[in-house]
Design a binder for these strands. Structure first.
Lengths: 191, 191
DNA sequence: ACCCCACTGTTAGTGACTAACGTATGAGTG
DNA sequence: CACTCATACGTTAGTCACTAACAGTGGGGT
């Protein structure tokens, strides 16, 4: 609820032009209460990426496939699972997600934080790759491939927000991956 | 000079544990003077990426090559041109650059800002790609490929700082690109 | 009726950052 | 040498994000 008021105010008047106190007043609570639920002002907009979900799909992918295909496929599958919500409340959630994304893309501070949160996601994915990260050299390759996949996904997220969710998100991610790695990594299903 | 004092203090006691006032005192100036030369505390550590240099090499790359090869090649060439400094002062610069990088990797706030500055670099590179970004769809593919290349380079920079500059930076970047895109994009020279 | 506990509010304080204003140093010109 | 002007530096006061310590309030179980 606090978050909804915050995103609305930020969208209307700009992120930096709105103080936390104003968000608190709009939500009918004290500023301290806001900080108790959201550690920083930025967390009012940031969306927690489903690291668990993605990591599981990475771990479940066949280890024989190239790295970018394992990670890219997991990203497409996770996006499919998330945006594939049915009808009613899912649409509201998607509107809210798009609002947050637009703020993240247009506000430097939020953009920076979001990119850094992808850095944490990268760690989780590299761990999920497991056997491919034993030697320092293999870990380096795993990190490189993973960060490249996440960068492509970020581009897809940006485009998704720009065109207001017209194209399905999994398709955009697949196209971003294809543009970066060729068609080899774009095939999400791998069974 | 202010920057040198700042990086030394940050490395010794941690970025957040050092106030801007302390940096100013160590440098023998006022806090206001620090802010006049560095807009934010983070700018004391951030290194300006040579966007001009990279963009020129991207623009000069043959348009027939795949996107990731054009961008990746330009990144390797730019790194070669930069770290290829000769002997005396270049070594000091490289030590300083490594200190800054270590701080950037280990401090969340700096890491976030650095990732966002790569976002600006991405814009410059996409513009330099020129003809490949006329239609919205081509621009999307260009952004995806560019961001993936930059993410791979960031992984190489991180590794470079971790192993204290043992391996040559251009080679690390080439290996990160190869791990992501296959050997097609790793060939830096293209003449 | 009692206590416990999670949630909330108040106050005071730190630190990054800005704005407005006054001061000195150093180069160029008469 | 005096004058001037630009550039850099310092001081003060203020805003805002964020933290710590302490106090109040409401409902749930015994």
């Amino acid at each position: 609820m606090i978050q909804a008021h915050a995103v609305r105010l930020f969208t209307d008047r700009g992120y930096e032009a709105v103080t936390v106190t104003e968000v608190a007043e709009a939500a009918g609570v004290s500023a301290m209460t806001v900080y108790r639920h959201f550690p920083t002002k930025e967390d009012l907009v940031l969306i927690d990426q489903p690291a668990r979900l993605i990591a599981e799909r990475v771990a479940a992918s066949p280890a024989t496939h190239p790295l970018v295909r394992r990670v890219g496929g997991a990203l497409v599958e996770a996006a499919t699972a998330l945006t594939g919500g049915d009808g009613d409340e899912a649409a509201v959630n998607e509107r809210f997600l798009l609002d947050c994304l637009r703020l993240m893309v247009s506000t430097p501070a939020l953009r920076a934080r979001h990119l850094d949160s992808q850095y944490a996601l990268q760690q989780a994915i590299v761990d999920a790759l497991g056997d491919d990260a034993t030697t320092p050299d293999a870990a380096f390759r795993a990190r490189a491939a993973t960060s490249a996949c996440l960068a492509a996904m970020h581009t897809a997220l940006t485009r998704w927000a720009e065109e207001d969710g017209q194209t399905e998100l999994p398709e955009l991610i697949a196209r971003a991956l294809a543009a970066s790695f060729g068609d080899v990594a774009a095939t999400g299903r791998s069974d």
